[in-house]
Each structure stands twice: as C-alpha cells, then as structure tokens.
Nucleic acid binder design. Structure first.
Lengths: 181, 181
DNA sequence: CTTACTTTGTGCATGTTGTCTCAACGATGT
DNA sequence: ACATCGTTGAGACAACATGCACAAAGTAAG
C-alpha cells in the first residue's frame, strides 16, 4: 500500500502520511510502499493498544450503560473489571457479569482488581472528587464525560468527551458556511 | 473579568485569550477587562448557539437512548424532534414524547418537522447510507458516532465521536509517559 | 488637570505544523 | 549488467499558532 492510498483513506496527503510515520521510524520500502499488515502491527505496538487494559466504569447511568454494552470496547481490549455508582438502589445489582459497587469501597476494589483506566460517566459536581480519588489510587488515565475541566497532576492523562460541545461545534460550522454563501 | 482570569479558567495564557477574542472583534475595555455577561452573549451569537436547533436521532439503541435522555442537550437548545430506527420491534414505541419512526418515512418526516441536525447512533455499516439520505434531504450538519469516515459533500459539516479512539489516545499517552520516566 | 495604574489589542519574534521537492533506493525488465 | 520506474525519507520552505512586549486607552485619585 502506497502513502498515496493511505492518504486517500485517511483524508490527508501522501506527504503528511510519510512524515507522520517517519517520526516513529522507517516502515516502508522504496518503490514498494508499506506492507499493510506489518504497518498495522507496528502502529498498534507504538500506540500501546497491542495489549488489554483494565477499566473501571464510574456512573451506572444511561451513558455508563451505553458504554458498558458497546461491543467495540471489549473487542479492542478494554475490559471493564468494575462498575461504581453512588445510588443505593443500584448498588448490588448486576450488569452482565459485573455487580455494581459502592463508591465507599472504591479504593479497595481499584487496587484488588488492578484497574488502570477510569471512565467517568457521572454528573459534573461529582467528577472532580472521584477523579482525585482515582489519581490517589494510582490510576494511569481518565476518560471524562463530565463537562468540567478536571484538576489532576500532569502525569495522569485525561481525555475529555463533551457531547454538547460537539453539537455546538457543528452549529458554529453551519453558521460559518451559511455566511460564506 | 480580566484576560488573566479567563486564561486561568481555561487552562491557557492571557495573551492567547486576547488574541483569540480579537479574531472576532473587540470585546474588552482597556483598564477594565471583559464584562462576563456581555462576552458570553456575544460568543453565543458568534458560535451560532444563541438559538435552538431541531435534531433528529437515528438509532434507538443504548447510545441513542443515552443521548436522548441527556438533560444538557435540551437545556442547550437542541430539540429532538424525531427518532428513527430500523428494528420493527422498536418502531411505533415511544420514548418520552417521541414515537420511534421507521427509516422508510425518513425523508418525509425530516421535511415535515424541519430537521436541521442529524445524530447518527447506528452501526458503521448503516451509517453511510443514512448520511447520504440525510444530505439529500437537506440536513445542515451531522454528528456521527459510527466508526467510519462519512463521505459527504464539503458543504455539510460532520463531527465524529469515536469512543474507542478516545480510549486508544489515552493508552498512547500513558505509554509515552511511562517511557519518559 | 495631571499623574499613576490597569488592561486591552496588536506588532514582532519564535516555534510548530503542513506542503513541496528531490536524491536515494529497491524492484523489474531487457 | 544496466536502465527505468515507482516510492520512500528527509531537507527546504511556507503557513500558522503561540508567547512576549508595549503603545493606546480607559479608570481613579489627588
């Protein structure tokens, strides 16, 4: 596969593809292109997705459920090993093979099950506290759905997903294009 | 509120705040700073979020449900005026005040209800077809949760949300920091 | 009115990112 | 063996974003 083909596939330019890849090493053969299978494998290793990760889900609401049932998660190596919620009615009930735990036992469960990643699917006002506790418990990274900027040490990466902001970005783009016309 | 305060709030620098705002006009007063309320209002207008948008939800699965029930949506002016699904068992049943429609009447409903934005919460293999039909029906923008790159004309903005990629980005960052140490 | 103080908006320097171009290199065919 | 073709990897260059510094402008106080 040539950089040209890869570029078409990824909506970019051939030069960009080559330059990006060259940051990590030399994967292609001149005159031939890149061997797709090998390249994939190398990239998986580089990105750290050539293994499975142990994930805890905090928040057993609608978003939590959607994530938990999302098949692509498990198939890409993200194993949900714990679910937490603060609602006493939910604690003890089970989703699939996981029973929902109280936040009272957060630290204990996190350590016992060797959780590496935490997904925060809880309201904004509870997110910071849980995030801090997760960092304290030695979590490696946080995927945050709450609409606030978490205050955590720089060593702990945070990825934010803000659904309303995605819609607002759309609104802005639409407005822009209408004005251009 | 000074640019300094705004910067602290938004995790950036005062100069950055001023420069970004200056792209859109002159909002502050020298010696005084920015008047928060006025600034918010101006930005809302600039971003096109000073009005409400009519949204159709395609896909009445877990993710669709999570979005539909997400209170921040409605409160920010995104009104869900239609829900579509291909599952015959779901068609006709209701969520809240919306009854789920068949994709057979997609074009008709889209026009009747004046849908402006479409949210695709369906599997990847169905997403392209619905996207094309939505464009044909004159939609203004698409929020896409399916893990594929939609092929649509440049006039129609698309925002992609790929949850697995977010986790993979986390994995990469974690790997990077571990190597640095 | 004048002076001291605060804060914006912008020109300038610097660093980062994307694009273009081309020599180096491997494969293929004569 | 040799020339030709296709493609990479890297250096040069242009575009863009970021950070700094300061004049302009407004406030407040004597």
């Amino acid at each position: 596969m040539s950089s040209e083909e890869l570029a078409a596939w990824g909506q970019t330019t051939a030069a960009q593809v080559r330059k990006d890849l060259s940051h990590f090493g030399s994967f292609g053969k001149r005159g031939l292109g890149y061997q797709a299978g090998e390249l994939c494998e190398s990239l998986r290793t580089l990105l750290g997705i050539d293994r499975s990760w142990k994930v805890a889900l905090v928040g057993a609401g609608r978003i939590g459920l959607a994530l938990y049932e999302y098949p692509a998660f498990r198939s890409r190596g993200y194993d949900c090993v714990a679910i937490f919620d603060s609602d006493p009615e939910k604690i003890g009930t089970a989703w699939g093979d996981q029973s929902i735990c109280s936040l009272d036992v957060f630290e204990k469960v996190m350590e016992e099950r060797g959780v590496e990643l935490v997904i925060l699917a809880i309201p904004a006002d509870a997110a910071q506290e849980v995030a801090s506790r997760a960092v304290e418990a030695g979590v490696n990274g946080i995927l945050n759905f709450a609409p606030i900027r978490l205050n955590v040490p720089a060593e702990v990466p945070v990825e934010d997903v803000n659904l309303v902001m995605e819609l607002e970005a759309l609104s802005f783009q639409i407005k822009q294009r209408k004005q251009d016309v």
